[in-house]
């Protein structure tokens, strides 16, 4: 089913809606989002509450029980994700589409050794314990952990934030997925560690020819890291552009966000404050 053309979209999302039922009302969090992802790094940026994380979760149907996901079309390499049963989704989650969460301190099991935890991704493949261990070691090595033998036996609380995030990347890459969804994977990290983790992610995604959906609130980071950017506001994509052209974005929301950032190079007397236009909700 998968195609060899690198430009061909693997994931197609057409008119995605996510609604949350609450006791008071229905919250329409994602309102008609459409995009495609090929073997490329695509960034989804927006502020808190824009629906960017909900889109990432809806692709794998990992939304909360009170959410309804609907789409005209949502398919990955020909598999329909919108209508798939839980059983079919289990074959997609982790195996064909991996997901990296924001904070490894919460996403990793605190009472399980790191190596065993990574190895769980290989359950059901009929590997011997030695084969499994070898694969985990190789993957720890691939995420540039210098001493995999030692790290294998550590618990998550014994590793730093940057190392924890590499462990999560290793875990997600082990089943050899074709698409990775990373939700704010480096927001909890210091700037220099962030660069290291991004470089590793960049290299592995590129060398293995994966697609990557990179969800972030950081415009500067996405501009440098991704190939293409979708800007979300209030549950819609208001603008799409090449990451390199983000500085020349057209939509007033994107321009407003960029203008509100303080800059290291030049000092402004006052920062420009975003004036929200109700028309953006419909645009």
């Amino acid at each position: 089913m998968s195609t060899t053309d690198p430009a061909a979209p693997q994931l197609v999302v057409d008119d995605l809606h996510v609604r949350f039922r609450t006791p008071q009302r229905i919250v329409h969090a994602v309102r008609g989002v459409s995009f495609t992802v090929g073997r490329e790094k695509i960034g989804i940026v927006g502020e808190s509450g824009s629906g960017k994380s909900t889109v990432g979760r809806a692709i794998l149907r990992l939304t909360a029980p009170n959410a309804t996901v609907s789409a005209t079309r949502m398919s990955f390499q020909g598999t329909d994700l919108a209508g798939a049963s839980e059983r079919d989704l289990l074959k997609v989650r982790g195996r064909r589409i991996g997901m990296i969460m924001q904070d490894p301190r919460y996403a990793l099991d605190p009472v399980m050794r790191v190596g065993e935890q990574i190895g769980e991704a290989l359950d059901g493949r009929g590997l011997s314990a030695a084969e499994r261990r070898a694969k985990v070691m190789a993957m720890l090595h691939a995420v540039r952990i210098r001493n995999p033998e030692r790290v294998y036996d550590l618990y998550p609380h014994e590793v730093s934030g940057g190392m924890g995030q590499r462990i999560m990347i290793a875990m997600m890459l082990l089943p050899e997925p074709d698409l990775m969804i990373a939700d704010e994977p480096t927001s909890a990290l210091d700037v220099t560690v962030r660069m290291q983790v991004l470089a590793i992610l960049d290299e592995l995604v590129t060398s293995r020819g994966l697609g990557l959906i990179f969800i972030s609130h950081d415009l500067n980071l996405v501009a440098g890291f991704c190939d293409r950017v979708l800007i979300m506001y209030a549950g819609r994509i208001v603008e799409e552009c090449r990451a390199a052209d983000l500085a020349a974005a057209q939509h007033p929301y994107t321009r407003g966000l960029l203008a509100s950032l303080p800059r290291i190079e030049s000092r402004q007397d006052r920062l420009s404050v975003l004036q929200r236009d109700p028309a953006w909700l419909e645009a």
């Binding site: 660069m195 290291q196 470089a199 290291i264």
Partner: peptide
């Protein structure tokens, strides 16, 4: 200088030069 460079956003070349392991790893 390293802190300043890392704060300017993602740069592939710069980032690759930083991928040496963390101390104590």
């Amino acid at each position: 200088a390293g802190l300043l460079a890392a704060s300017r956003g993602y740069d592939k070349r710069l980032a690759s030069s930083l991928t040496a392991d963390e101390p104590g790893a």
